[in-house]
């Protein structure tokens, strides 16, 4: 088990390095080869030549690509200074970059938005896992009945309806028409009540999409597991049906669900872009959209790094959970 954890951690470090390398490559190395000027992208089109030159110097764009990469990586851990002939700015560790557009480091901006995104993703996740898995299990047990067909039709619509449609529809009905749920995002620390009130609609909307996928996945997996020989053995032992389903079948059904959950959660930390935009939640997704509109390259880079790292870490957690669930992983 210990060796397994060490192996996984090692793999995570390698993965993170690859993530940094690829991100760096996309934003710094590729422009160099294609002939476009990263400095130009950093300041925007209307900047004057002197400003562009200043930025090129600050970013060290004239230096060899390896040295640039080293500065980029060391900045992540130790912070870095952007120095030019005229002035210099300090970006404290962890330096994910410096937005010359807003004249501020990226990291504080990211961290101020992270709680919003985590609140949204976490709450929605609880909803969709409970709802999706329960629906899926009941559907599997009542296979072919009216319940099963209804649930699966609703699930199909959940998967296929675009999220901005369901988001706007729910906003129109529950917020503007009925006025059941309230306004702006409030931090949990300030007022848990309005935190909940502000998030319930985005939660439900986002969870509806995911619950639909999870219900279908759970149903399919559960049906497969119910056909396994060991389920028949459990019944042959005289176990009551709730034990057979709840213990023996559920344990196996959880494995594929965990895999998908890890991926989904990781990706969501990068921001549920559409949901955040539709509900005006000041999360990472919204920041990403704003940054793209403003061509604020360092911000886009920062969000990309956070998302990629979140996916990597979520996968680490899933791998470790696997080992807890499946002894064949732990003991091999």
């Amino acid at each position: 088990m210990f060796a397994y954890i060490v192996r996984r951690l090692f793999a995570v470090i390698v993965m993170l390095l690859v993530v940094i390398l690829v991100t760096f490559g996309i934003f710094f190395a590729i422009p160099k080869f294609t002939g476009s000027d990263p400095a130009l992208m950093y300041v925007g089109k209307q900047a004057d030549p002197a400003a562009i030159e200043g930025i090129r110097e600050k970013l060290g764009l004239g230096k060899p690509i390896l040295e640039q990469f080293w500065n980029f990586v060391s900045g992540l851990f130790a912070g870095r200074d952007y120095v030019s002939a005229n002035d210099s700015v300090h970006c404290p560790a962890p330096c994910f970059g410096y937005s010359f557009r807003h004249e501020s480091p990226i990291w504080p901006e990211l961290t101020s938005r992270l709680p919003v995104t985590l609140s949204l993703a976490g709450g929605a996740c609880v909803l969709w896992v409970t709802g999706g898995v329960l629906t899926g299990v009941v559907s599997a047990l009542k296979r072919g009945t009216v319940w099963d067909r209804t649930a699966m039709t609703v699930a199909l619509s959940g998967v296929s309806l675009p999220i901005y449609f369901t988001a706007l529809l729910s906003l129109a009905v529950f917020k503007y028409k009925l006025g059941w749920v309230g306004g702006e995002y409030t931090s949990f620390a300030d007022d848990p009540g309005s935190w909940f009130g502000g998030l319930i609609l985005p939660w439900v909307t986002l969870a509806f999409l995911y619950a639909a996928m999870y219900a279908r996945l759970t149903r399919a997996t559960m049906l497969e597991v119910l056909g396994e020989d060991y389920i028949r053995t459990a019944r042959a032992k005289g176990l009551a049906e709730p034990v057979v389903i709840g213990k023996h079948a559920m344990r196996s059904t959880m494995t594929p669900i965990l895999t998908v959950l890890g991926m989904d959660l990781g990706a969501l930390v990068g921001g549920a872009i559409l949901t955040e935009t539709a509900f005006s939640l000041p999360g990472l997704g919204q920041a990403a959209v704003a940054a793209i509109n403003e061509r604020d390259l360092p911000m886009i880079l920062g969000v990309t790094l956070i998302t990629a790292s979140a996916v990597v870490f979520a996968n680490l957690v899933v791998d470790l959970l696997y080992a807890v669930i499946d002894p064949r992983v732990r003991l091999s």
Binding site: E228, D229, Y230, R232, T233, A234, A236, H248, R251, S252, I325, D326, P327, R328
Partner: peptide
């Protein structure tokens, strides 16, 4: 049962 590998739960 016939196949003891599939007839036993792999996780217990």
């Amino acid at each position: 049962f016939q196949d003891p590998l599939s007839a036993m739960h792999p996780y217990f």
